[in-house]
Design a protein around this nucleic acid. Structure first.
Lengths: 214, 214
DNA sequence: CTCACATGTTACTTGCGGTAACAGTAGCCT
DNA sequence: AGGCTACTGTTACCGCAAGTAACATGTGAG
């Protein structure tokens, strides 16, 4: 067969693909998630149909783009999660890693999580409806695995671990999103507060007495 | 003044508005969040510009639509949250209320949370990017208030309560979203697992020994 | 030289959000 | 009555973005 030739051509195609993704990245980071295919093609120095030949449709481009960032973030999280340290330390390190990532590149984060919120007249963005889930889901599954591997939860551990994995990721995500918007405290404080929550401080706290009237 | 006349006209306008919202509701529930303004107008028996006169733009229609459902859900949550019962009971009741709501009307839920995921060719949906936050945010703020009112957290209670409010809501949301998709267990089990997480079972559990190799 | 193939283009269709300009209708004011 | 305002409704259009068809061009293999 022509495998050797194929590989050569394939390599060139892959390089092109990577270049296109980087161009897309630049545009998305500059113009927000509302970036149009035309704009991306222009940034890459080519025209639309080529993008479509490479990625099928806009969702494909988005998926490829998201996968890059998602993979990178997941790797960082895995490192923090799998470190040989006390559980609380690991939890705090993981929370901090995530928050540091979204703090450092809020544009990327918003692109991954929140679809069209670009410019004033950009009402249609990437259809992240089906794609924003994956990041959260993948993080949830990853965390679930680690929990089940390393925490002794008795019977039903598999199910419990999955519920907790997704729940904790959701907590991290929502709190991070809110924090990124309002910046009501430092990152370290946020990490500490969330870890405290996970450590049962809600259950341990007493009822408030002398509260409002009743 | 012409207040009396105005009220009469206003009433008619309000009735129309409500009718339009109900039509929009039907269409969104049927066609998913990718419903077009034309489709909504047709369902209401009128044409597009009228929708725009009433709601300004698509975001306005969405916001009005979302507000109805959000208000209803928030009211139910408030009731569970403010009940005169033990804290754990209240937490479980609130979780269950939320999960029951999204279980009963997944279409509404997906519309509120996830934008365009409609039909196969519907790539642009409502720009929920800026509107899905509100529901989560409002729930988070609501919960924050209740936490601060009723739980004794010592100094920094305000900040801590807000972090926890948003975090817990995010946990509930993410776990609910995942659960709704996979249905890995009953609602009661999910509620119990999440409450256990909030009650510090993660911190209380021991390390797993004899785990994978290390 | 020519065939096959990959790369690139221009020019188009479709469909949606949003708007302008026009038409009919009900009540009030003098 | 007749006209003024204000609301409801329409058709017909613009702009823009996704996605596609058809055409052009370079390049290595036989």
């Amino acid at each position: 067969m022509d495998t050797t030739q194929r590989t050569e051509q394939q390599r060139s195609a892959d390089r092109r693909r990577r270049e296109l993704l980087e161009a897309a990245d630049r545009v998305v980071l500059r113009d927000g998630p509302g970036a149009s295919m035309n704009a991306i093609a222009a940034e890459a120095g080519i025209t639309k149909p080529i993008l479509y030949r490479h990625f099928g449709d806009k969702g494909g481009l988005y998926a490829a783009l998201a996968k890059r960032h998602t993979d990178a973030l997941l790797e960082a999280l895995r490192a923090a999660l799998d470190a040989p340290a006390e559980r609380r330390e690991r939890v705090e390190a993981t929370l901090d890693t995530y928050l540091a990532a979204i703090e450092a590149r809020p544009q990327v984060y918003r692109f991954l999580m929140h679809p069209s919120e670009g410019g004033p007249q950009s009402d249609q963005g990437f259809d992240v409806g089906l794609h924003s889930a994956p990041l959260l889901r993948r993080m949830g599954e990853e965390l679930s695995k680690v929990i089940e591997e390393r925490v002794d939860l008795g019977p039903d551990s598999a199910q419990l671990a999955r519920v907790w994995g997704h729940g904790i990721v959701g907590m991290m995500h929502a709190a991070g999103d809110w924090w990124l918007g309002e910046r009501p405290c430092s990152r370290a404080e946020l990490v500490r507060s969330l870890a405290d929550l996970l450590w049962g401080r809600l259950a341990a706290a007493g009822d408030k007495v002398g509260g409002p009237s009743f």
